[in-house]
Simulated assay, not measured.
Amino acid sequence: MKLRDPTVWMWSEALDVLERADRMQRQFFQLGAQCPGGPVWEPPVDIFETAQQFVVFAALPGVGAAQLSIVLDGAVLTVRGQRAMPDIGQGAHIRSVEIPYGRFERRIELPAPGLRVHARSLADGCLTLVLDKTGEPA
């Protein structure tokens, strides 16, 4: 009976996991094919909480302030907008599209009785929102 080399087996398993992750990404980031009129993708976010605030970072590469809408309704923060395909010019062939394009929306429910947008900035492809905890119902 021949024993399998564990390094070969582990490498094979790692490649299988990466392939499955790639298939999932392609399934979720399709260019508007599945839901006409609705959002196509959700931007990834990081959320940090202090005693007085929430700080939200959203990755929005290539999205300008004019394409962005931020709505705070009670404890639900909604970030929506659109990321347009770049105008590369006539005759260009797409070789790879990994960054999602089209309409996006991200709804975030925050566990706080009252929130107020204290500051917002959009720099280097990252939206930063600072939300103060007011403690008052909205």
Rank of each mutant, 00 (worst) to 15 (best):
Trp41Ala: 03
Leu131Gln: 05
Gln25Cys: 02
Gln34Asp: 11
Gln53Arg: 12
Asp46Gln: 14
Glu13Gly: 07
Ile70Asn: 07
Arg107Phe: 10
Gln52Met: 05
Glu42Gly: 07
Arg80Trp: 02
Arg83Pro: 00
Pro111Thr: 10
Ala59Ile: 02
Glu136Trp: 05
Cys126Leu: 13
Val130His: 06
Leu31Phe: 07
Ile94Thr: 14
Ile108Thr: 11
Asp73Met: 07
Arg103Asn: 13
Gln53Thr: 10
Asp132Cys: 01
Trp11Ser: 11
Pro36Ser: 02
Glu98Phe: 06
Val97Glu: 15
Val117Phe: 09
Pro111His: 08
Val76Tyr: 01
Thr134Gly: 07
Gly125Asn: 06
Lys133Gln: 05
Lys133Ala: 04
Ala59Phe: 02
Glu19Cys: 01
Ile88Gly: 11
Thr128Pro: 01
Leu15Trp: 04
Pro36Trp: 02
Leu15Lys: 11
Val71Gly: 05
Thr128Trp: 00
Ala75Cys: 11
Asp132Ser: 13
Leu72Ser: 08
Glu109Leu: 12
Pro111Asn: 15
Gly102Arg: 09
Ala123Trp: 03
Met24Ser: 03
Trp11Gly: 05
Phe28Lys: 10
Asp124Lys: 14
Ala65Ser: 14
Val45Tyr: 03
Glu109Asp: 14
Asp5Ala: 11
Val97Ala: 15
Cys35Asp: 09
Val63Ala: 01
Leu18Ile: 03
Arg103Phe: 03
Pro43Thr: 02
Ala21Lys: 06
Ala112Leu: 04
Arg26Ser: 11
Arg95Cys: 08
Ala138Cys: 05
Val45Met: 02
Pro113Ser: 03
Arg116Met: 12
Lys133Thr: 02
Phe54Met: 06
Thr7Leu: 12
His118Cys: 06
Leu31Ile: 00
Pro111Gly: 08
Ile94Asn: 04
Ile99His: 01
Gly62Asp: 08
Leu77Asp: 02
Pro137Lys: 12
Phe104Trp: 09
Val55Arg: 15
Leu127Arg: 03
Ala66Tyr: 01
Leu68Met: 08
Thr128Cys: 14
Gly64Phe: 03
Leu131Asn: 04
Phe48Thr: 07
Asp46Glu: 13
Arg116His: 11
Gln90Arg: 15
Lys133Glu: 07
Ile94Arg: 11
Ile88Met: 15
Trp41Gln: 01
Asp132Leu: 14
Arg83Val: 00
Ser121Gly: 15
Leu15Cys: 02
Pro39Lys: 01
Leu131His: 05
Glu98Asn: 13
Leu129Arg: 02
Asp124Cys: 09
Thr128Tyr: 02
Tyr101Val: 09
Val117Thr: 14
Ala92Asn: 03
Glu13Ile: 06
Trp9Gln: 13
Met24Asp: 09
Gln34Trp: 01
Ala75Met: 03
Pro36Val: 02
Arg80Cys: 11
Trp41Phe: 15
Pro100Cys: 13
Met10Ser: 10
Asp87Glu: 10
Val97Arg: 15
Glu19Lys: 06
Val63Phe: 00
Glu13Cys: 12
Gly38Asn: 05
Val76Gly: 00
Glu42Leu: 07
